[in-house]
Simulated scan of single mutants.
Amino acid sequence: MNTEFIHALKDLEREKGIQLGVLLEAIEAALVSAYKKNFGSAQNVRIHIQPETGEIKVLAQKRVVEKVNDPRVEISLEEARKLNANYEVGDIVEKEVTPKEFGRIAAQTAKQVVIQRIREAERNLIYEEFIARENDIATGIVRRQEGKNWIIDLGRAEAIMTPSEQIPSEVYTQGERIKIYILEVKKTTKGPQIFVSRTHPGLLKRLFELEVPEIHDGIVEIKGVAREAGTRSKIAVYSREEKVDPVGACVGPKGIRVQAVVNELRGEKIDIIKWSDDPAVFVANSLSPARVLDVEIDYENRVGRVIVPDNQLSLAIGKEGQNARLAAKLTGWKIDIKSESEAGDWHGWDDEDFEF
């Protein structure tokens, strides 16, 4: 090891953020093991690397004792004081025992330690980068399928999209670019493990935040999202400024903004609902595109009883109950629907039909 090696370590300190002192300590610890492995020494040793020149010394350590039982690790007080009159019982005496051929072993060992530390540092940097992006949107490239999982290339790392986070109707092809939602980042010995989703409601929310400047600027707020990925979603929006129509802002001129989101989600239908702090109004709005005649709110049981025109009943309920189910998820209320001509014949939804 020489000054060029020390300069190389200092360059790593600047480029990778690995402190020189930390590297030297790791190398010294590794060299202790290398010395004992190659020279079969049972004595205690310490490795010292001169941080300016890179000079390496192997120092045998012996404890000062009154009576020596093991000369490999002990030295008598009398012998110690021949070296230095100030030694006392319990002190550690060090003597250089650097083998002539130790330089080659040291260089090889140091190289291995540095490579390992560089990998660890890079893994930590990648982990810190992606843990900060948890619950955020990202663009990735579909790389390959492993079992039922898809591997998505995020640039500096690869992410896993499990079957439960894949939209059932979507077909992924290698090399295509897709937007995904970063669900979770785990720290492992092999580097960060990143899990992503195409089904999470957060993906829909973040897509609108990217497409709608009023949301980015804080004028329009997304109050809630209910999603059945791949088929239909509902979002509730609210404007902090009376002059700004939150639904119109999200739809965009000629529907360009919402269409961009629909295209990214490959045709998923999206209902944009105006949020209200009045439960009756909010429940009525949530059943869009159906027209609602009246809403009765049962606060105690948290139920909204809705009356719709006869020709709107199937639209309000939706195919297989989807529209009513999404409305319930969005509002947090159970929703009972009946047509105008019905007399007490309710189309009710049980608690177990919804997840609030």
Rank of each mutant, 00 (worst) to 15 (best):
E94K: 07
E122R: 08
I115P: 00
A121G: 14
F102K: 06
Q108V: 13
V97H: 04
A80T: 04
N44C: 00
V89A: 10
I126N: 06
L59M: 14
V45F: 09
L77K: 03
E94Q: 15
A107F: 09
I92Q: 11
E88V: 11
N69K: 12
Y87F: 15
A110Y: 11
E66R: 15
T98D: 06
K62P: 01
F102T: 02
I92S: 02
A121L: 09
E78A: 12
E128N: 13
V113E: 10
V58M: 08
G54L: 10
R46E: 15
Y127S: 02
A132M: 10
K111C: 00
E122N: 01
I115K: 11
R119N: 06
I75P: 01
I105N: 02
K95R: 12
N135H: 14
P71E: 15
I118H: 00
E120G: 05
T109Q: 04
R104W: 02
N135G: 00
L59T: 06
L125T: 09
E52K: 15
L125C: 00
F130E: 01
E122V: 04
E74Y: 09
V58E: 08
V45N: 07
E78Q: 13
F102N: 02
L83G: 13
E128M: 04
I118N: 01
P51N: 15
V89T: 13
Q50N: 15
K95F: 10
H48Y: 11
L83I: 13
E101S: 10
T53A: 09
I118Q: 03
E122Q: 10
K82S: 06
T109D: 04
N124H: 12
V73K: 11
E66L: 13
Y87E: 03
P51Q: 09
Q112E: 14
Q61S: 09
K95I: 10
E101N: 12
F102C: 06
E88A: 09
T109S: 05
I92C: 02
A138P: 01
V68S: 08
P99Q: 06
A106N: 03
T98K: 11
V73C: 05
A85G: 07
A110L: 10
I75Y: 08
A138S: 12
T53I: 01
R46D: 11
T98G: 07
R119Q: 13
R63T: 15
P99T: 06
Q50E: 15
G90P: 02
L59C: 02
I47P: 01
I56L: 14
N135M: 06
K57D: 12
Q116W: 09
A110M: 07
G90W: 09
